[in-house]
């Protein structure tokens, strides 16, 4: 028997709670979540970042996956920079499980996140899954009193190395059609293209958002 546990809409996820600033340790922590439909390349992004980031600025990559290497809970990669003067700036990178049935888990991983990378599988036949996943992201953020359009957020058009990919304009039309355009990055995480650019894109937005809110 298949039992799908879905948290009820009355589930108290609590108010969204973001960056953690520790003045005693001169440390700031941010949380970034890679979101997207199943097999769109979220884990591959983190694997590549882990492979290529300098050892002094990264921790271990931990994947809570099934025996078939599908993400069951999340992947986790801690990164460290000196992006804010005088503070050690830590970015905790997470992925969510993309499979539809794991929505409760996605909501748990989204908790307290400071920025989102929405990872798109660029193949034509995946467009319905991409739009469904984006809608799911909006709904899950709303449950924690966040609005996607008001938080640091970038879109990565992944798998651009494949032959059956949709044109950028078409994906823009489907997924990036709001009044303000969301930063997008062309990528092939498998080949390493666009991964660093996406990471820097979202990290900059997260930092700017933080500075804007707290330097007033």
């Amino acid at each position: 028997m298949l039992v799908i546990v879905t948290a009820s809409s009355s589930c108290d996820i609590g108010q969204s709670f973001m960056a953690l600033v520790n003045y005693a340790k001169k440390e700031i922590q941010f949380k970034i979540v890679y979101y997207g439909c199943g097999l769109c390349g979220k884990t591959t992004n983190l694997q590549l970042i882990h492979e290529r980031a300098p050892s002094k600025s990264k921790g271990n990559l931990t994947s809570l996956a099934t025996s078939q290497d599908r993400t069951l809970f999340f992947d986790f990669l801690p990164l460290q920079t000196t992006a804010i003067e005088g503070f050690v700036t830590k970015f905790q990178m997470y992925t969510v499980p993309g499979q539809v049935k794991y929505n409760s888990t996605r909501r748990l991983v989204l908790r307290n996140c400071d920025g989102v990378v929405f990872c798109v599988d660029s193949q034509f036949e995946k467009m319905a899954e991409n739009t469904e996943s984006l809608e799911n992201l909006r709904e899950n953020l709303k449950l924690q009193k966040d609005e996607l359009d008001e938080m640091p957020y970038v879109i990565q058009y992944n798998k651009r190395d494949l032959l059956n990919v949709a044109p950028q304009e078409y994906i823009d039309y489907l997924l990036n059609n709001g009044s303000s355009k969301i930063p997008t990055f062309m990528a092939s995480a498998k080949l390493g293209d666009g991964v660093l650019e996406t990471l820097n894109g979202v990290a900059k937005l997260v930092l700017q958002d933080f500075i804007q809110k707290y330097n007033s």
Partner: peptide
């Protein structure tokens, strides 16, 4: 107040 350092937040080992 917080100040963001110049340049990219992250770099890869190959300098990219």
């Amino acid at each position: 107040s917080f100040v963001i350092t110049k340049g990219n937040v992250f770099q890869f080992e190959d300098g990219s």
